[in-house]
Write a protein that binds this DNA or RNA. Structure first.
Length: 237
DNA sequence: CCCGGCTTCCC
DNA sequence: CGGGAAGCCGG
């Protein structure tokens, strides 16, 4: 908490609380099915890079001692409800909840080393649930339990919920990708027309803006932010 | 019955 | 891991 901010300062001064110090990476991670096996890598942190991997991480502030941190998947809509999908991994149980004991010195938990998301449902179940919750978006909910005088982890702190994570396999969360372009050179004066062919295009992406203010246009505009550009400078030669 | 789009599974 | 085939489902 910044000292200059009275509100944050008050909260911090009142007692232990959980803080997310590394959010999960929101895009680019693919949810896996149970049948795909356990070894597809963990959910990376927002600032993760291939030579410097990070994982979602929480920290318990204003506390010294042992604590247990539990993580589970919740819906992306509020109020957060337990998600149909579940976390799997070394510290996870069959209910999809991961649990890690931390402290007394280091009060950070690198969100249970390798949390991995998995579908855990029969087809028919998934279909029913798909109507009530978006199966392609999850959030992580972290709940910390402080140790009581008997040694039990009973003192639950207020849970914190991460940013939403979008399944990269889901058609409308995947990035537009340029597969071909009709020219790689152009006039320095600009004004050239270049045709780009893209992968991962969805039906609604083809609509012309002039068609009117249709909600179906939204995905294209939103996804365009994630469009993979060609190598820098390749348009001038 | 066919078709497109998404889900599930496989490599 | 990502790409893609197979399968399912609604229209």
């Amino acid at each position: 908490a910044r000292g200059s901010d009275p509100v944050l300062f008050c909260v911090a001064a009142h007692g232990p609380y959980v803080q997310i110090i590394e959010e999960p990476k929101q895009r680019g991670f693919r949810f896996r099915y149970e049948c795909e096996g356990p070894s597809h890598g963990g959910l990376p942190g927002a600032s993760s890079e291939k030579n410097r991997r990070t994982y979602p991480t929480v920290k318990i502030n204003n506390y010294v001692g042992h604590a247990r941190v539990e993580v589970q998947l919740v819906t992306h809509t509020d109020p957060a409800r337990v998600h149909a999908h579940s976390l799997v991994g070394r510290h996870c149980n069959e209910n999809g909840t991961c649990s890690l004991d931390i402290g007394p010195n280091d009060l950070t938990a690198s969100s249970v080393p390798e949390p991995k998301q998995n579908h855990n449902l029969l087809g028919s179940e998934a279909k029913e649930l798909g109507k009530v919750m978006d199966l392609n978006i999850v959030r992580l909910r972290f709940t910390a339990f402080l140790q009581d005088s008997n040694g039990g982890f009973t003192r639950a702190l207020k849970p914190v919920v991460s940013n939403p994570i979008y399944d990269s396999k889901s058609p409308n969360a995947s990035n537009l990708k340029i597969s071909r372009m009709d020219k790689t050179c152009g006039s320095v004066l600009g004004g050239d027309e270049i045709f780009l062919l893209c992968d991962k295009v969805q039906k609604a992406d083809g609509r012309h803006p002039a068609a009117g203010p249709d909600a179906a246009e939204q995905p294209a505009a939103r996804r365009a932010q994630h469009l993979q550009p060609p190598a820098a400078g390749s348009l001038l030669c």
